[in-house]
Write a protein that binds this DNA or RNA. Structure first.
Length: 200
DNA sequence: TGCCTGATTGCCT
DNA sequence: GGCAATCAGGCAA
């Protein structure tokens, strides 16, 4: 298992949204390490993106988005769900990448316990689902992702010589579950994956 | 202070 | 496909 370096989080938010595909998200829990392969992401920008939490400026809730890149931005939504994001862009630029789906890799029984669901295909195929499967909540907001109990692992962490996905493997579409900025093509997922929240 | 909405999910028809 | 659950943040007053 090779954790990414801090430099992994430099570049445009859109580039990082694509770079994260094929990488892994690890969380160390009381039931051991829980790991999933990232197969679906969405970019949320600062300006020109009304769907972004950062669009209306910095607040107590979204402050982490405006901090340095490579940290976790976790927020509570709909009174019952958490969503996990990777902060991108330099200080004072409120941008992040929402992780929408994972393919379960390790700690699947722990995921089942946290989710209360058996089917592997239903464990992490949605932003609220994966946060629950990895036992993520507001306590994880602001944590670094290149060291510590919550980390991003390189795409070659599990399969020998596994390379990042080719550009042709990545499908780009509009985002899901928003009411403004619906026309922006800022969602990315791996065409070959059967674990995305939904295709096209 | 009060009202409305939301980067969702799961259950019901 | 429709809709309830459930509550913190954001904005109007």
């Amino acid at each position: 298992m090779a954790t990414v370096k801090k430099e992994f989080f430099t570049g445009t938010t859109i580039a990082i949204a694509q770079r994260l595909l094929g990488a892994y998200l690890l969380h160390s829990t009381k039931f051991g390490n829980v790991i999933g392969r990232i197969v679906e992401t969405e970019a949320y920008l600062h300006q020109r993106d009304p769907a972004s939490h950062a669009f209306r400026g910095k607040t107590k809730r979204n402050a982490v988005m405006f901090g340095p890149p490579g940290h976790a931005y976790v927020y509570f939504i709909y009174g019952m769900h958490y969503c996990f994001n990777v902060v991108t862009a330099p200080d004072e630029h409120g941008e992040a990448v929402l992780i929408r789906s994972l393919e379960p890799v390790r700690g699947i029984d722990a995921m089942r316990y946290f989710r209360g669901v058996e089917s592997v295909g239903q464990l992490c195929n949605g932003p609220g689902k994966l946060a629950k499967a990895l036992n993520l909540n507001l306590a994880d907001n602001g944590k670094p992702l290149w060291r510590g109990p919550l980390r991003i692992l390189r795409p070659d962490s599990f399969l020998n010589f596994a390379k990042p996905p080719r550009r042709s493997e990545i499908q780009r579409t509009t985002r899901i579950g928003i009411s403004s900025g619906v026309d922006l093509p800022l969602r990315f997922y791996l065409k070959s994956s059967s674990h995305v929240s939904r295709t096209l």
